[in-house]
Structures are given as structure tokens and as C-alpha cells.
């Protein structure tokens, strides 16, 4: 098992600004994801999170640097990397089954119709939509639509699952249920996942590692937070874990203040190629909590 299944190596992305100049969204970003790891990226709007994900999916290309998967630089979209879109992006003229089957028949063009349908039905059942196969997306609720999006992405058995704020458009209850299901499915299959989110609790519940981005433009990876919670976690119990508030406070503290100030007070030993890895631990915390709460392990 490679520790660097996915390796982001010095990627930079610039866009044309309205005034004719160039805006650098983020610059010289380095981080890696191991096989089977669930990594979340957190940062404020405008830090280029979605662009990082688009580069990983191959829909966008970096201006500098490279995103390397399994030893090969990403040059375009691939069926090895499935995307779950924030807006679910279902084809509205196809049924639930048709949407999932479309992905499967793209993945395995030589499969027979019955093989494709069987696979599609298996994954539709997996996300709890059995019985809704013949419905059109317009007949589904937001949560159900996103379930179809998840089924579509998982059905092609990708090496990597990329999720762009997949639950942000859903109500809290539905979001919770879907998080549980995504977590269960990803654990079952040992799926490598990269997910973008705004939601600190979502990241704590789902992720093994959390990449913190500073504010854009010219955003950078401030640090990589290791989740101190055990891999086996229960949504209703995690807040009792001694390290829960350590990591939660650390993340919120970052989003509230350090994401703004990080760039002006970069630590002397900061290396872009090896952003500091932090493992927040339960320890007496001063009030208000500051970034000293994190203990460096790298």
C-alpha cells in the first residue's frame, strides 16, 4: 500500500480577473492521500477548494505542478475517479435506473443490458432507493436525488471518490442519514475519498485527515489535521470522545481566525511541500482556545 496513492505536487491555478490581470486562486499546494483514506478539505469560499477537486477529477488542469494518482499525472477525466456533484447533476430525462445505468455502461461498454441493470439495481438498493428505479429525478426529494448521485458514482467502482460539498444543499436530518450511509459504504469497500466541505462536524465524523486551506486568493495548505477519533465512530457518541472537542475547537478556531491570519504569521519551520501535520489531543485548554491546542506530530 502506497502512502501516496494520490499526490498533489505543487499545483497552482490562476484565473483571468475581470480587470484583465490574473488572480492566483491557490499557489504551490502539496499534500498526499493514502489508499483507503478519507480526506476532507476545509476552507472558506474562494480558497479554491472546488478547483482542487476539479483538478483531481480532471475537469480542470493546474497551471503549474501536477496531481498524481497511482504514479500517473492526471491529464483529464477518468472513470477511475468518480465525482459526486454538489448539485447532484442527474440527467433529468433519465430515470433513476437510467442515470445509474448510464454511468455503468460508460464504465463497461461491453456489458449486456441485463448485467448493467443488475449492477445499477444493486447500487440503487445500497443507497436505499429500492422501488424508486423508474422515477425521474424531478419526482425525487433533494436527499433522494443526491442518493442517486452517490449510487451513480459508486456503481462504477472507482478507485477514488471525489465529493464536492455533496450534502450542503440538504436539510440537517437528511444530511445526517446520508453521511452515515456514505461512511458505511466507504468503510465497507475501503474507498479512497476526497471530500470538500464547509461543515466542521461533517469533516470530524467522516474524515481520517482534514486539509485546512487558508483564505483565497493565493490560498495555501495551512496544515493537515489528523482525526484523533477512532475509525469506528458513532454519530451519537463521538461528542463524548475525549478528543472530540480538541479537534472541533481546533478546526473552528482555524476557520474563525487563523485561516485569515496564517499567511501573515507563517511559522519559521513551515515547508509548503510538507505542511505540518497536527493531531489535536485532549488537554486543558485556555479560554479562548488558541491554535496551541494542537500538538505537532510531524
Amino acid at each position: 500500500m502506497s502512502a501516496k496513492f494520490i499526490s498533489i505536487e505543487g499545483i497552482t491555478r490562476r484565473f483571468e480577473a475581470p480587470d484583465g490581470g490574473m488572480t492566483t486562486v491557490f499557489e504551490d499546494i502539496w499534500f498526499a492521500i493514502a489508499r483507503g483514506e478519507f480526506v476532507c478539505m476545509i476552507g472558506h469560499s474562494g480558497c479554491g477548494k472546488t478547483t482542487v477537486l476539479n483538478i483531481l477529477s480532471g475537469l480542470d488542469l493546474p497551471d503549474d505542478g501536477a496531481a498524481i494518482v497511482d504514479g500517473k499525472a492526471i491529464e483529464g477525466p477518468s472513470l477511475d475517479r468518480a465525482v459526486i456533484f454538489q448539485s447532484h447533476a442527474l440527467l433529468p430525462w433519465r430515470t433513476v435506473l437510467g442515470n445509474v445505468a448510464y454511468a455503468i455502461s460508460s464504465r463497461w461498454p461491453k456489458w449486456s443490458r441485463s448485467q448493467v441493470e443488475e449492477q445499477a439495481k444493486r447500487f440503487i438498493e445500497k443507497v436505499g432507493l429500492k422501488g424508486a428505479e423508474t422515477k425521474k429525478p424531478a419526482q425525487l426529494s433533494g436527499g433522494m436525488k443526491q442518493r442517486v448521485g452517490i449510487a451513480r458514482a459508486l456503481s462504477i467502482e472507482p478507485k477514488i471518490l471525489l465529493m464536492d460539498e455533496p450534502f450542503s444543499a440538504l436539510d440537517a436530518l437528511t444530511r445526517g442519514t446520508l453521511q452515515d450511509e456514505v461512511r458505511r459504504i466507504c468503510l465497507e469497500t475501503g474507498q479512497t475519498v476526497f471530500m470538500i466541505t464547509h461543515d466542521v462536524d461533517e469533516a470530524i465524523y467522516l474524515a481520517d485527515k482534514i486539509v485546512l486551506m487558508t483564505n483565497g486568493p493565493e490560498a495555501m495548505v495551512a496544515e493537515i489535521v489528523e482525526n484523533p477519533l477512532p475509525k469506528e465512530r458513532d454519530r451519537n457518541q463521538i461528542h463524548r470522545h475525549p478528543a472530540f472537542y480538541a479537534i472541533r475547537n481546533h478546526l473552528i478556531d482555524f476557520l474563525v481566525s487563523r485561516s485569515k491570519t496564517f499567511k501573515s504569521e507563517i511559522p519559521a519551520d513551515y515547508d509548503r511541500r510538507k505542511p505540518p501535520v497536527v493531531l489535536p489531543q485532549n488537554q486543558p485548554q485556555p479560554l479562548p482556545p488558541s491554535h496551541e491546542a494542537g500538538r505537532k506530530v510531524a
Binding site: 475537469l59 477525466p77 477518468s78 475517479r81 456533484f85 460508460s106
Partner: peptide, 12 residues
């Protein structure tokens, strides 16, 4: 665009 992106990620 998102429908085209779906097709692109599926290498259609």
C-alpha cells in the same frame, strides 16, 4: 455545464 461534466467524468 454540469451535465456535460457528468459525461466528461464518465469518459463518454
Amino acid at each position: 455545464k454540469e451535465w456535460l461534466n457528468v459525461a466528461r467524468t464518465l469518459e463518454v
